[in-house]
Simulated assay, not measured.
Amino acid sequence: MSLDPAYLTRMISAHGPFTRVVVARAQGSTPREEGAAMLVWPDRIVGTIGGGALELAAITAARAGRSGFEAVPLGPAMGQCCGGAVTLGYEAWDSARIAQVQGDWHARALGRTLGRTEAMPLAVTRALARARDRGAVPPMMIEGWLIERVAPPPLPLWIWGAGHVGRALVNVMQPLPDLAIHWADSHAERFPDTIPEGITPLIAENPATLASLAPRHAHHLVLTYSHALDLDLCHRLLSHGFGALGLIGSATKWARFRKRLAALGHTDAQILRIACPIGDPSLGKHPQAIALSVASALVREQNAVQTASERGMRAG
């Protein structure tokens, strides 16, 4: 997981300053991977470093004001059967700290206040230079410093429709990192009383008129209450441009839509960029089943893109 200043800013705006706990090193069998993080306040937590005894101890330590690194052998220290070891980094964050995050990589010493005369260790300087010049991914920990990649802008995901499937999708997608979710429908009453944190609701009498507001690389999931509205959205999005477009529907609906979209002037190649149905049909039509399968496909896609990017960086 990358360090995301925009997300951290939203969390501070919503709940105030916090302590961030990050898995800076993972060796052997561990609950979570390097980079997994959680945010800890006196009255709440967001995210997870794996749950169980390790997470409970980390929450307690964060609330007690711990800073810096802590090496934890999971078996001897926690009685966990994983058998591995982790090093956790504890860091207090506020708006001033977020303002220090610049560029593609962010390196800082944990557990002490940096004075003006304290220089970055040469090993850290060299690791950052290799990352920026040759794409070599640095270790997260070097000589008491934590190095993290700064997250690129989140993927815009637009969910069209606040019915059963739309609500299930939002509830499943909302906790996932690196997504900026917009949720559109025709009336405020169609949304739940409480919109999940971080979701941007959009309301228009004809939601299809909002399609032009979406970034041209956005991903879209079209699942409104109306076939006519679904068709209008597909037509407008094909004309506007998109990164991916999924449409809920049966084989009969999709065959009808292909004919109508062709009559509206779209080519077969354009129309076939639409994925219909969405999700894995073998899991059934329950809203949560659809949401889980769509979310898992999106996560696999994002992980594949990130893995390919990291391989390209190493090869470069």
Rank of each mutant, 00 (worst) to 15 (best):
S2M: 14
S2L: 13
D4R: 07
R10P: 05
S13M: 06
A14W: 09
A14Q: 13
P17K: 01
R20V: 01
V22C: 03
V23E: 00
A24W: 02
R25S: 05
R25E: 07
G28N: 09
T30R: 02
E34I: 13
E34T: 15
M38R: 03
W41Y: 14
D43E: 15
G47P: 06
T48A: 10
G52K: 01
A58E: 07
I59H: 08
A61P: 01
A64F: 10
A64H: 14
G68E: 07
E70W: 15
P73G: 05
G75I: 08
A77N: 10
A77Y: 12
C81V: 13
A85C: 08
V86T: 08
V86N: 04
W93K: 03
W93G: 07
D94F: 08
S95Y: 05
A99V: 09
Q102Y: 04
Q102K: 15
D104K: 15
D104F: 11
A107Y: 05
A109Y: 01
L110T: 01
L122K: 07
A123I: 04
T125P: 00
A129K: 07
R130C: 14
R130Y: 14
R134K: 13
A136Y: 10
V137T: 12
V137Y: 00
M140T: 10
E148P: 07
R149F: 04
R149Y: 06
V150P: 01
A151S: 14
A151H: 03
A151T: 11
P154M: 10
P154V: 11
L157H: 03
G161W: 06
G163Y: 02
H164F: 09
H182T: 15
W183R: 10
E189Y: 05
P192T: 09
D193T: 15
P196E: 06
P196R: 10
I199V: 12
T200I: 14
I203G: 04
E205S: 15
E205M: 14
T209H: 14
L210W: 06
A211K: 06
A214L: 13
R216P: 01
H217T: 12
A218P: 06
H219Q: 14
H220Y: 04
V222M: 11
L223Q: 04
Y225N: 13
S226K: 07
L231S: 05
L231E: 13
D232V: 06
L233G: 03
R236A: 11
L237F: 09
L237D: 03
S239N: 08
G241V: 01
A244S: 11
G249F: 02
W254D: 03
W254N: 05
A255W: 01
R258Q: 08
R260K: 11
L261I: 00
D268L: 10
I271A: 03
R273D: 05
I274Q: 07
C276Q: 03
C276V: 00
G279N: 08
D280G: 02
P287A: 12
Q288I: 11
L292I: 09
V294G: 03
A295C: 15
S296W: 10
A297R: 13
A297F: 08
R300F: 09
E301P: 07
N303V: 06
Q306I: 09
A308Y: 00
E310R: 13
E310L: 14
G312Q: 13
M313N: 09
M313V: 00
A315F: 09
G316H: 10
G316V: 00
